[in-house]
């Protein structure tokens, strides 16, 4: 099928590599294998995959280096899915560096395939479906503009998500959250989105101020705010899929 998305699996564990190959093959994807980053770059040159599923720990260019090389050329394609064994990378770091998804081993094949489908869908379609029957928390954020929001660590925007500061303590990894953000003076003045919390990090500000920084991957963006967001995306083309504030050092909590 010519419209099927091509997938490159980069994994040095032969058993796992074979398994992933088999899985994507069964789902009808054209699949290619590479055993390290260098190998992967060659295969990408030849097969032009839409998705690169890559392990992180590998000899001869690891997954993060590969990610950096790819996103330097084009932030939108191919989609890069990082698979980490355990401690090599914090998911927040993976998203910030531009990975569209970060999986930690052991992981669900179904979830992986699901995210491949989702991440290969066109941007206009990806955030159209409002998730039904899930509880969510509402968070409202206001900032002067995007730059100010980032500098004051109140809100930042990525290609597929956002990070924000909140004094809410009950939000956790995997929770759905509805975010309503307003900027006073930007082309993008408002964003209404529902997303999944992918990471959080404790912060202690001046005085009594304390709370969490949260990283959210968008699942749905309101019709009214989607178009300006897509326009902003094309203009800015940010590398981070979900941003993280620069000043954050380490992401201890997942």
């Amino acid at each position: 099928m010519t419209d099927q998305k091509r997938i490159l699996v980069v994994e040095d564990e032969p058993d796992l590599c074979e398994m992933l190959f088999f899985e994507f093959q069964m789902k009808g994807f054209p699949v290619y294998q590479a055993k390290n980053g260098i190998d992967a770059l060659e295969k990408i040159e030849v097969y032009k995959p839409d998705v690169v599923v890559t392990d992180i720990r590998m000899e001869e260019m690891n997954g993060l280096e590969l990610l950096e090389r790819l996103k330097k050329e084009n932030v939108f394609s191919p989609v890069v899915i990082l698979v980490s064994a355990f401690s090599d990378i914090n998911p927040a770091e993976g998203y910030r560096r531009g990975a569209e998804a970060v999986f930690t081993k052991p992981f669900s094949l179904h979830a992986l395939v699901e995210s491949v489908y989702r991440l290969t869908s066109p941007l206009e379609e990806r955030w159209k479906n409002r998730p039904a029957d899930v509880p969510w928390y509402r968070v409202t954020i206001a900032a002067a503009d995007l730059e100010e929001g980032r500098r004051t660590r109140i809100i930042d925007l990525g290609r597929g998500g956002m990070c924000f500061q909140s004094t809410e303590f009950h939000l956790a990894h995997g929770d759905h959250v509805a975010v309503c953000a307003d900027w006073e003076s930007s082309e993008l003045s408002r964003l209404e989105a529902i997303g999944l919390i992918r990471w959080r990090a404790r912060f202690e500000g001046d005085g009594d101020a304390q709370g969490y920084f949260y990283g959210v991957e968008f699942e749905y963006i309101s019709e009214e705010t989607l178009a300006p967001f897509l326009a902003w995306l094309q203009t800015v083309q940010p590398v981070p899929y979900i941003p993280a504030f620069e000043v954050l050092e380490g992401f201890p909590e997942i």
Partner: peptide
Amino acid sequence: AANIAHEINNPLATISAACEQ
């Protein structure tokens, strides 16, 4: 611990994938 987690997660990933399949 980090290393061991890593060492174990790799085969676990394979096993888990195998089970899923």
